[in-house]
Design a protein around this nucleic acid. Sequence first.
RNA 1: GCGGCUGUAGCUCAGAGGGAGAGCACCACCUUGACACGGUGGGGGCCAUAGGUUCGAUUCCUAUCAGCCGCACCA
Length: 893
Amino acid sequence: MAQLDQETKQQEENSLSTVYNPQSVEGRIYEFWEEGGFFKADPDSKKPPFSMVLPPPNVTGSLHLGHAWDNTLQDIIVRFKRMSGFDAVWVPGTDHAGIATQARVEKAIRETEGKTRHQLGRTEFVKRVWDWKNEYGHTITTQIRALGGSCDWSRERFTMDDGLSRAVREVFVRLYDKGLIYRGHRIINWCPRCSTALSDIEVEHVDVEGTLYHVRYPFSDGVGEVVVATTRPETMFGDVAVAVHPDDERYQSFIGRTLALPFTDRQIPVIADEYVDREYGTGCVKITPAHDPNDFEVGERHHLDQPSCINLDGTMNSLAGRYQGLTREEARRQLVEDLRGSAYLIQEEPLTHAVGHCSRCQTVVEPFLSDQWFVRMEPLAKPTLEAVRSGQLRFVPERFEKVFVNWMESVRDWCISRQLWWGHRIPAWYCDDCGEITVSRDNVTECSHCRSKSVSQDEDVLDTWFSSALWPFSTMGWPEETPDFKRYFPTSVLATGYDILFFWVARMVFMGIEFTGKVPFRDVVLHGLIRAADGRKMSKSLGNGVDPLDVIGQYGADALRFTIANGTSPGNDQRFSFERVESSRNFINKIWNASRFVLMNIPADFVPFNLSKVPLGITDEWILTRYAETAREVTNHLERYDFGEAGRALYDFAWDEFCDWYIEFSKLALYGDDEQAKHTTQTVLVTVLGGLLRLLHPIIPFVTEEIWQAQHGTDASISVAPWPDAKTMPTYPESVSKVQLLMEAIRAVRNIRAERNVAPGKPIDLYVRARDEDSLRLFHSTESYLRRFCTAQTLTIAVGMEAPATAVTAVVSAGELFVPLESLVDLAQERDRLTKERDRLIQEVDRVEKKLNNANFVARAPEAVVVAEREKGKDYAMKLFAVNERLKALLNE
RNA sequence: GCGGCUGUAGCUCAGAGGGAGAGCACCACCUUGACACGGUGGGGGCCAUAGGUUCGAUUCCUAUCAGCCGCACCA
């Protein structure tokens, strides 16, 4: 045992290990890349530029599979472009993620010191967040490295960097000056738990089982009543009116009368407004302007008060009388009970309705009336829609254009102020003396209107997406006209998940157009969501999340990347399963071992032939052709962002054709006596492997680099090796069809062996009846392959030979193969076999004949299709004839 | 309500106007001088349903059914 261990160890030291071990490779390779500066862009380069920005992840977050997905796709793109001769830059960076980061640091401080942020004070708290960022802010960028991301780290940015913060202020001031940013007293979405305003898209509408309460509001004079229907009775303390439709005949006489609001001493009028739907509920709507956006508008029209009855923390205020201090939920429960008891409540109707929830913490959002900052969207949306319609912005897959346009067309003003401490503070100062607002790029010490020194800055910060929206140009140095900005903006491609199409992509587009006059990227590549193996969303609460770092640790980054890339079909979700990662790992191991084989069979001082100057065998020509075709396909797929298809083409070529067939074919020459043929084969092996590695490199960068190093020494990196250019590669279609015939024959014999339980190693006598002179030449020229792959001790090839007695027959396109068996051939079994084959062929022949007999088909189908169909027909007919002959012979025995 | 996606082998999913594919699983055989994370051979599918376009539809169009996702909501 000890000896064996030692042997294995020695073996590993001497040559590449038989099992690829990513853990011992990937870290070293990434360091090599980073130290070599291979990913650094060069603005002075003569190459054409290609640029991308990384969607900035949360600086204090850690990598999840969604990141892994778009990072992998982006890395594939940028590596492909870099190898294709572009000065490619991929700008990385992180996002300050206002709410998430603040909440996280608050929690940490609460747990360690038992203090709230208010106890620490704003300055101290912000300092703590920076400390946190400095300590944990490298986690995610380290993880992107572990994944193999070929980012230009010298250009790394953070949304709260000085430069980017300057860009934020510049944008704010310019929009304010143009009237595109304003401060307004409006109903916004308020999250009582995060205690901040949210934008419309940060609210998720979830269907909830609720109740429609029918509540009696008596008239003040004691004569009669109206019945209002509401899902939120607790807001009645903020009611200022009850509205009915002006044309509603039932309620004409009510309009203008006064109601006594139950449980209060307040009197509210009945008003008429067309907003009311006569069909819904009772046709009487209580109007609560401070707690409902529609009511707010009704209130504005009728110049009504806007009293709030709920505090920012979600509890009831003094207007709610004895319910003061209760939470919204408790107040509702209590109130409903009291209403029941007091006979105000006349009906409770179950109702499913959509209720807004905070997308971050799932708390029910409170529509709240407050002063907030908004971006006026209409003037920004217009040029954006124009850019999409004119094709300056391309979506992959296309269908997202429609989604994007729909959203843009109906977008409402964007609430950008957040009641947080972590973020870009709004550059607006209020004057205590004249009450005017001063908005400025620089910090303000005196009011620009009245010169008063008594000014104070707005307490709020901006929505994190406000700074993310500037990312493609703020990272390039804007508003300065830096060399990077001039060369790399607008960027070439943006790749991200469709879940942030509105949050991020849309906003980058209109900000880009507004401030640079350009769409910030040409192509938007959108991928879906990674789901758990059972198809459910991965989530913390379900505990079914998979940590990409665990996957990398277990299987290697390449396996994860290959899995994700191969699972990508444009715009669709994919399920993650370890079975698929395993199969990727196996593929990588296959590449590793194929490479080992090639390296083992090439002398250290090997000088390859010039393949255009030496005679090639048909298998050489075949694999070179298939290599060229694969290179062309993969290139096309990558250019169209068809990552899954690219991966599949490579998988099939590498495994089925290069490994299973060519490497096996090559052994004949490698272990043979013909030095010239051996050298040719070695050259082909090296050529195809080298090309294959380069084609694979964007998807699985580590293993391909490791092999490349073993093959070429350590001076250069495959990451900057030239992309295989299919246009310059010769192809040999004739050899391809010949090798196909050869493979068909080999498979047929293997099939006979398997069916007849003839051990693969057991030699047979093989008789080959060639169909014609061409086939005869083919079989003769491939004799050595037939012998080896059929394990034939004797091989007899002829046209028109007599079938040997007691032989099993296989009919192939180039002729018939006879394998005489020592044991008696079971005639019945053989007849069954051939009869099955005959039936299949008859079907095929019928199908083809039907087609060819159809005059319309021959007249209207493309010439090539008709020709191909005729060829097929001939092939089937010949095979059928041969099978029938053989059956006849068997019946005579 | 409006919009979109998905429905193909037991499972997960590709695919393309002209002979149904992969991975995993399954069956049989094989340690053959790169690889058992391997090799060889094999079984398995009216490509959701109904119409239409077409010489030809699993693929394009329409409708239906089923599942999923956005957006908008009348309390």
